[in-house]
């Protein structure tokens, strides 16, 4: 047989293939998909039952009514819990949370960016060691790390005693917004540093060289090249700091006082002491909404940069 480009057609079943018809491989590929789905199914079921369903229940509760005794009546569906979100007191707490979370985010960015830049411009060896040094406190117990600041900022702590000449004997750091922000920055700074470091480390520094070659000053090269290219890291870090800061509970509870109540603590209060579950649920939904907005912003930016 010489001509191999067109071997004689045999009667071996060669199904005529219209382009829009499913191909021969379809059954095999479907079996493969089914197999993959089945492997993921147990976790999917778990998440549906113990995450998605609870989420729905919270939304349902937010429309329920609270009885005089604090019981939740799953009837008489109404929006009064949402209406209460606009009470001056609640709005104040919400705005305070927003403000403290934003402040935390900005401070983390201002401190974290140069830190990540410093890290990313070290030699690979040094970089590895420094990164480990960032990771260790990051992975250590959050509650305990916050507690440490209570000791530091407390009445007999080193800070107050050191600052006594300035603050006076009545001065106090603990239970102030300052303490809360310090605690939040302390807790979430690594969330800012790690994504920033990840983008800066991957940044092609020959682009900066190119900018310098094209007569940019160091400052111009930074603003016109490095900063825009590191923006995905900035956005990711900011969101990762903002979301937990906004919903924080442990930090304001340990370091804050009556006048620094944040929305997380307020939610907990509805469940553990005030026993107003519908209102607490509505507050949780509000937190979720803020979180989702932040997440959408993040994914939008990421997709645009990509």
């Amino acid at each position: 047989m010489a001509a191999t480009v067109d071997p004689p057609r045999t009667q071996t079943p060669t199904p005529a293939s219209a382009p829009d018809e499913p191909g021969l491989e379809r059954a095999a590929e479907q079996a493969e998909s089914r197999r993959g789905f089945l492997i993921g199914l147990p976790s999917l079921l778990y998440l549906v039952v113990l995450f998605a369903l609870p989420l729905v229940i919270v939304v349902v509760y937010s429309f329920a009514t609270r009885s005089r005794t604090g019981r939740t009546i799953l009837a008489d569906w109404n929006l009064s819990s949402y209406a209460r979100l606009f009470d001056p007191l609640v709005l104040e707490i919400g705005l305070r949370s927003l403000w403290l979370a934003l402040l935390t985010t900005v401070i983390s960015l201002v401190v974290g960016y140069p830190f990540a830049y410093y890290l990313a411009t070290r030699s690979p060896r040094v970089r590895g060691v420094l990164l480990v040094l960032v990771m260790i406190p990051f992975w250590s117990n959050f509650l305990i790390r916050t507690y440490a600041w209570r000791v530091i900022l407390g009445r007999d702590g080193p800070f107050v005693r050191f600052l006594e000449p300035i603050l006076g004997t009545e001065g106090q750091l603990l239970f102030t917004p300052f303490a809360v922000v310090v605690g939040l920055v302390y807790g979430y700074l690594p969330f800012m540093i790690l994504p920033l470091y990840a983008t800066l480390e991957r940044l092609d520094f020959s682009l900066v060289e190119a900018a310098r070659d094209l007569h940019a000053t160091g400052w111009q090269a930074f603003w016109r090249v490095t900063w825009p290219l590191s923006r995905p890291g900035v956005v990711a870090g900011s969101i990762l700091v903002f979301i937990p800061s906004f919903g924080a509970y442990v930090t304001p509870e340990i370091l804050g006082g009556g006048r620094t109540t944040m929305i997380g603590s307020y939610v907990v209060r509805q469940f553990l002491s005030a026993r107003d579950w519908p209102f607490g649920s509505a507050l949780s939904v509000a937190i979720l909404a803020v979180m989702l907005v932040a997440a959408v912003v993040y994914f939008r930016t990421r997709d645009r940069e990509a």
């Binding site: 998440l47 979301i243 937990p244 907990v268 949780s284």
Partner: peptide, 28 residues
């Protein structure tokens, strides 16, 4: 693997990572 509904699954899988712990606590 590739199958339909994967993106939804993916999203559901990411939510517990970013959800504030207070909200998750209420849910539970």
């Amino acid at each position: 693997f590739r199958y339909r509904g994967q993106r939804t699954y993916d999203g559901l899988l990411y939510l517990p990572v970013i959800i504030p712990d207070v909200t998750m606590a209420v849910m539970m």
